[in-house]
């Protein structure tokens, strides 16, 4: 194709998206669209499966049977969500194994928040409440993103995720209303998870490299700063309601703007964790790599067995 023809196709393509038409796997798409989507969807998928680890850390120690089954079901959902997203990504012409390869070699990123440790039971509450809360804010607009398979995966994810945040907040309520030790545990978890949750919504608009293009392709509907403000505005009253305090002395309601003002985010910490220097980066990655490597003989066995069965069937037919 000549450059002019491509330019023409690109224009038609952008118009389709502007008209809210969906792009489907076999449709023509600019290479940049494909690459950007592979990057974002796989990053999202990786976040789901790496995100299983910090919470999985507490499944065997959950304090009641009710909590144990809820947490198991939640972490299992995350595996499911990872699976839906990998599948969506695969429609763009890349295999799940290649995507894993990118994760395992550190080439692909995942949400940095999962590089923090879960050190008490209250962390499970805080993750459900804050991390899932922030994730939902990120994800709901993606249900109407331009790439069909991604949008459909997100609709399923959002539908299933509705219990996750409640699960976490309910844990926090119980702790906040419990013994002084429990309340302290809840406050401590909030103190540790609040700022990373705010960072989860991405760098400030001034620093964010992808925003403009992402807006055009409906990978984003609001800027990172807008989403962050929305998250703060909705979460602060929830903390007030259960008597917990945000670890931010500058946080206060602003009558004029109708929003909360908040203190400075430590972006230095954010970038350090992104670069791999968070408290658990190595553990998380090695857990994934181990699961994959230790599972290899199992996956091979299943393929070998399938092949033998296929051959048996053929022989019978002859």
């Amino acid at each position: 194709m000549s450059e002019k023809e491509i330019k023409n196709l690109e224009e038609i393509f952008e118009q389709r998206i502007a008209r809210d038409e969906k792009i489907e796997p076999k449709d023509w798409m600019p290479e940049k669209y494909r690459k950007t989507h592979i990057r974002q969807i796989s990053q999202h998928a990786h976040s789901e499966i790496v995100g299983m680890l910090p919470e999985g850390n507490w499944i065997t120690r959950a304090p009641s049977l009710r909590r144990k089954v809820a947490l198991l079901a939640k972490v299992q959902d995350e595996a499911g969500h990872g699976l839906y997203l990998y599948s969506a990504c695969e429609t763009l012409g890349i295999s799940r194994d290649e995507l894993y390869e990118q994760l395992h070699t550190g080439k692909a990123k995942y949400s940095s928040i999962f590089n923090y440790p879960t050190i008490t039971w209250a962390d499970i509450g805080a993750i459900g409440w804050l991390v899932d809360g922030a994730a939902i804010i990120n994800q709901v607009p993606l249900c109407s993103t331009s790439y069909g398979p991604y949008a459909r995966a997100m609709i399923r994810v959002c539908k299933e995720e509705s219990f996750h945040q409640r699960q976490g907040y309910e844990i926090m309520i119980k702790l906040a209303k419990g013994s002084p030790e429990q309340k302290e545990m809840a406050q401590d978890a909030l103190n540790r998870w609040w700022w990373p949750s705010l960072m989860m919504l991405g760098p400030t608009d001034a620093e964010s490299v992808h925003t403009e293009q992402s807006m055009k392709w409906k990978l984003k509907r609001k800027t990172n700063d807008e989403l962050r403000q929305q998250f703060i505005d909705q979460t602060v009253p929830q903390a007030d309601l259960i008597g917990l305090t945000m670890p931010d002395p500058d946080l206060k309601w602003n009558e004029e703007t109708g929003h909360y003002d908040f203190g400075d985010i430590d972006w230095d910490e954010f970038w350090q964790v992104v670069k791999g220097h968070g408290p658990c980066n190595e553990e998380r990655l090695s857990a994934r790599v181990n699961a994959w490597e230790e599972g290899e003989w199992v996956r091979d066995a299943a393929m070998a067995y399938a092949k033998k069965q296929e051959e048996k069937k053929l022989k019978k037919a002859i």
Binding site: S87, E90, A153, A306, Q309
Partner: peptide, 19 residues
């Protein structure tokens, strides 16, 4: 509904049920 990976048809059915 979506897709998944499996070594054979039986496993695909079981995985589909679970996923």
């Amino acid at each position: 509904f979506g897709s998944l990976h499996a070594a054979d048809a039986e496993m695909a059915l079981e995985n589909a049920r679970d996923v």
